[in-house]
Design a protein around this nucleic acid. Structure first.
Lengths: 127, 127
DNA sequence: GAAGTGTATTATATCACTTAATACACTCAT
DNA sequence: ATGAGTGTATTAAGTGATATAATACACTTC
């Protein structure tokens, strides 16, 4: 449903969250899961804006945050490239996992689930 | 930090999310984890607003959502009471857990974690 | 020099959230 | 009956984040 591909990355935007945040997360996810090679070039700001039918400023905001995190390197006049530093990628991947886990456990504890309950819950989900 | 108690419920508001959502979640959490007895009365709209130093309309919005979910019953002129129907409470608790789990697994998968990786991650967090 | 990059700026519009003030309907204790 | 305390509705206003639009500048490559 409204999935768009650009530069080897899948984009699926909706209205549940800010657009710049979704663009950021989906590129970051693609890098973290190895869906895009290190050193690779990603679409230009204008190109991605046109493909996703959103404003260049909105794409820019996502790109700037990626660079701040060290996930991309931007070269004026050339474009934006995924970092070649695999260590940075793994660190960020690890951090994302830690944060997701922490948030999950906090939520479960706040509604009265113990560690054992949670284990059971996760195993039930298997098929 | 800035934890306030009202009607046997702990409130801790910040600016990370809408106030009405935090009030809703914290009351709901208290019910789900059994921190407050079924049938119990919770603070009046005006009283809670004053205690939390927020607008009565904001409290109202949280209370209305609680009632829509069947977690509370409101009696005009009397107040707002936690439902006495334990089944409803357990259903909602279960739903919250399911949603939290689904969101967590999706996030982890999106950054390339397999089921086994996730198991390992959760166990590492133990002490 | 032209085309394509990233980047900055200014203005505008929209929407969610929050507050404020006020009023009404109801219940209960007195 | 009255008054105090309930939930509820309405209208108005302000604020901030988000997104768009239009434009301009600096840089790289061909």
């Amino acid at each position: 449903m409204s999935v768009v591909e650009a530069g080897g990355i899948q984009f699926d935007l909706d209205l549940s969250k800010p657009l710049y945040e979704q663009v950021l997360q989906q590129i970051r996810g693609s890098i973290a899961r190895g869906g895009i090679a290190l050193g690779e070039k990603i679409p230009s700001v204008r190109e991605l804006a046109q493909t996703l039918k959103i404003n260049p400023n909105t794409v820019m905001r996502a790109y700037q945050e990626l660079e701040r995190d060290g996930l991309t390197e931007t070269r004026r006049g050339q474009g934006t490239f995924i970092t070649s530093n695999n260590e940075v990628v793994q660190d960020i991947r690890n951090n994302l996992a830690l944060e997701a886990t922490k948030e999950f456990l906090e939520k479960m504890h706040s509604i009265g689930f113990t560690r054992i309950d949670i284990q059971r819950f996760l195993n039930e989900g298997d098929e």
